[in-house]
Design a protein around this nucleic acid. Structure first.
Lengths: 223, 223
DNA sequence: CATGTCTGGCTGTCAGACAATCGAGAACGT
DNA sequence: ACGTTCTCGATTGTCTGACAGCCAGACATG
């Protein structure tokens, strides 16, 4: 490959179109619960608060709708998606299946460097679990590495959508005492299996992790 | 349920927003290969051919991009997605996982009436396999019933996206001689297990079916 | 032949406009 | 006082027209 001279391939596209910056802003607002589930998104308000035209706002809303973060009701507009308990259960189950797949792909496709990065990420999570540190951010980095290494566009896209929706619940599920530490441990098991290049064990550990997350989350939800 | 008075639930939404009609048209064009993978979608052309404004066209494109049917390159516009062999493999694997889940949900949630409908659908597929009939349409109906009975919004949405992408390949994968008949048989096995309310067996049969489909498809692709 | 320049074709974004529709409150009849 | 109908403001759905910026390929130049 001649690409090794210039770093990585086609060029990761730096200059973000305005529409994407706006999408990110709104998505962040939703995930931070500054916009709460069920709340209506009025186009005019968004144009004013974000300083962009209505056309742009509408494209952004469609984008977020496709990600499942907002729900559009014809002739009434968009509101922040609020998930039913059964939706939540299904989403966790889907995540379990697909992340297991992602982990398998990681074992097949990732290089030694990426395995190291994943190990580093899980260590960071563990550190942030007991003590200080940006736990959410650390987890994000973990998944970033995982997706990068599994090298599958379709998987990445789909899982991103699922994860975003999980985060609509995460604010509650994370609050369970002691959960972060155990989560870190479960993820460590995944990485252990990956380092041993044991795809089956890694996938299984991954499923176990998400099942646990789902349990604590739904426990919070129904209480 | 009071809904039995008025037929089925919230109201299936009859008057489709123009945007959705257009989306359907373009999607159909892509799946029929009237727009071939790699072909560019020029906004102005679409506005003329479809008789709608550019704003509407752009929202449609974003929608299809989210479904994975078109790929947008910043500053260059959209083109029909062309899938790599590895993408195809991943998509089939994802489908296997998620449809297995859907089948499980169907076993849990579907009523006797829906099981009957599913049986009818698979019979229809078998009939269309050897002889005349709309094979594609029959399969669509099968999945429609399956999704309806599994009663999961997230699952339905995600699987719809995957299926659409599979169809980008299906024109080739279906051409394998004798494949329709065996596909019908595999699906019958799924329904058998469902009728026996054996979720595990049903899920397994489902995975087997999609693995086979994936094999014949990729065999065609790499040849 | 390699390099620099120009130009047409598209996309990205904006502003403003108008009809259709929904929801809530006002007006009404009983 | 209560249910029904009417009315109106708020919002979405869609269109038109416009303009700047970017990209690729044609063209000119040394």
């Amino acid at each position: 490959m001649t690409s090794s001279v210039w770093g990585s391939e086609p060029l990761p596209r730096v200059a973000a179109p305005l529409r994407e910056q706006v999408t990110d802003r709104v998505r962040a607002a939703i995930l931070d619960l500054r916009l709460k589930p069920g709340e209506r998104l009025i186009e005019r308000e968004l144009t004013e608060n974000l300083g962009v035209s209505r056309a742009t706002v509408r494209e952004v809303i469609r984008q977020l709708a496709a990600e499942g973060l907002v729900t559009v009701v014809p002739q009434r507009g968009a509101e922040v998606t609020s998930l039913s308990a059964s939706d939540a259960a299904d989403i966790y189950e889907m995540r379990a299946s697909l992340e297991a797949l992602a982990v398998r792909r990681f074992v097949q496709r990732a290089g030694a460097e990426q395995v190291r990065a994943l190990r580093a990420a899980v260590d960071e999570i563990a550190r942030s679990a007991d003590g200080g540190g940006d736990h959410l951010g650390a987890k994000d980095r973990f998944y970033e590495v995982l997706m990068e290494g599994s090298a599958s566009g379709p998987l990445q896209q789909t899982l991103a959508g699922l994860q975003a929706r999980v985060r609509l619940l995460r604010a509650t599920s994370l609050s369970a005492p002691g959960r972060p530490a155990r989560a870190a441990e479960e993820l460590r098991a995944v990485v252990d299996a990956i380092e041993a290049r044991d795809a089956d064990a890694a996938a299984e550990a991954c499923v176990r992790h998400i099942r646990h997350a789902a349990e604590t989350a739904t426990a919070q939800l129904t209480s």
